[in-house]
Amino acid sequence: MEPTEALPVEPLGPVPTAFLEHLRVERRLAERTRIMYAAALRRLQAAMRDQTLAVDQVRPHHVRRWAAQLHGQGLGSRSIAIHLAAWRGLFRWLGREGRVTSNPVDGLRPPKGQRPLPKALPVDQAVALADHRDDSGENDPRLDARDHAIVELLYGCGLRSAELIGLDLHPGGPGGGWIDLTSGDAEVLGKGNKRRVVPVGAAAIAAVQAWLALREQLARPDEPALFVSQRGTRLTGSQMRRRLAARAVQAGLPSHVHPHMLRHSYASHLLQSSGDLRAVQELLGHAQISTTQVYTRLDHQHLAAIYDAAHPRAKRKS
């Protein structure tokens, strides 16, 4: 039999869409993570198509080659790690579905790279952002109250972006979290569907109460979310990031600010004051203490800067 001409193939077909839906519904992965995974799956799709490989034909040597190509294209170790995590998760899911018998990504690790320190604001800048109120008259006072409450919760409670967006007015809502203003506690749904309770400070409680007094003017009658957009529906991550960045500019902060920077600031400032690594781990919801230990490096940098600026023996020759 003569060989037939190779036809263009879609080796994964509708699989990526089904897998991403699984991540959204069952794994409850954050929107930003799903976006990164979707990009990684598109690269996998293209690589398999280039070699006309079906999903059950992918082997470890293929994945190693593709990872090396990502490195050659200039992707850093963290980006490659995200790609491998997405691919590994896909093949694991395909195995449960009976589509493949082995996972070609198991055991493969990204190239090691220096782990960057999380970016945290100095205490004075974080406090200035939390205290900032827009008195210009150009901003909707309802949105100003909402954004003030968001900053207070991000910096005052160390919440992740998805955890804050997932807060509802009442317990048992679809977002998975809520704030008990009477007890001063917030119950949030974190990574891996793990729940934790974090204390909410007086400043954050007052800010949330001020927002709640105006919330009904924006929210749709049946909307369960604590924080809503101008359209009255649950605020999205991209909307919150844009508003926070603009608010930081209004407050006079010199650097770009994103929600996770306030979580880093919360952890760093708390650790500087208390020195209790285990307590900070619990408050942040870290599964591993090693994840929290990165903030001790930040604290060391802070102390080293003070030493360099103040100690007479710290002056170094240029």
Rank of each mutant, 00 (worst) to 15 (best):
R32W: 14
R49V: 07
G76W: 08
R28P: 09
P60E: 10
V63H: 12
R78N: 06
W66C: 01
G76N: 14
R43E: 11
P16N: 09
R42Q: 14
A40P: 05
R64Y: 11
G76Q: 12
Q57H: 03
Q45M: 10
A38M: 01
E10D: 15
L70A: 05
L29Y: 12
I80D: 02
P16D: 04
D50I: 04
Q45F: 07
R64N: 09
M48D: 03
R34M: 13
E21F: 10
M36G: 15
H62W: 05
G72H: 11
L7T: 14
Q73K: 08
D56T: 02
H61F: 12
M48T: 01
P11A: 01
A40W: 00
G13C: 07
Q45D: 10
E31A: 14
A40V: 07
E10Y: 15
R49K: 12
V58T: 03
V55M: 11
W66I: 00
G13E: 00
S79C: 08
L41N: 05
A39V: 09
R42A: 14
R27Y: 07
A40R: 06
A67C: 12
R27A: 11
A30Y: 03
V9E: 12
L12T: 00
M36A: 15
A67H: 03
L29P: 02
R24V: 05
A30H: 00
G74T: 01
F19E: 00
E26Y: 15
R43A: 06
R34Y: 12
H61P: 10
P8Y: 02
R42F: 08
L41T: 05
Q73W: 11
H62F: 07
A46Y: 11
R43K: 04
L41C: 04
T33Y: 11
G76L: 04
P14S: 08
H61N: 07
A40H: 07
A38W: 02
R59K: 13
I35V: 13
D50H: 09
L29W: 04
A39C: 10
R27T: 05
V58R: 00
T33F: 06
L53A: 09
L23Q: 02
M36N: 15
P16K: 01
V58I: 00
A47F: 05
P16C: 04
E21Y: 10
V25G: 04
E21T: 09
Q51G: 14
R64T: 13
V25P: 02
V58W: 00
F19S: 01
D56C: 01
H22G: 02
E26L: 14
P16T: 06
H62A: 11
A40T: 05
Q73V: 01
R78S: 11
M48P: 04
H61L: 07
Q69K: 13
M48H: 07
L29C: 13
R65G: 12
H61Y: 10
S77N: 11
A54L: 10
M36Q: 14
I80Q: 08
Q45H: 15
I80G: 05
E21D: 11
A81T: 03
G13T: 01
V55Y: 12
L20D: 06
M48V: 06
P8C: 06
R43I: 01
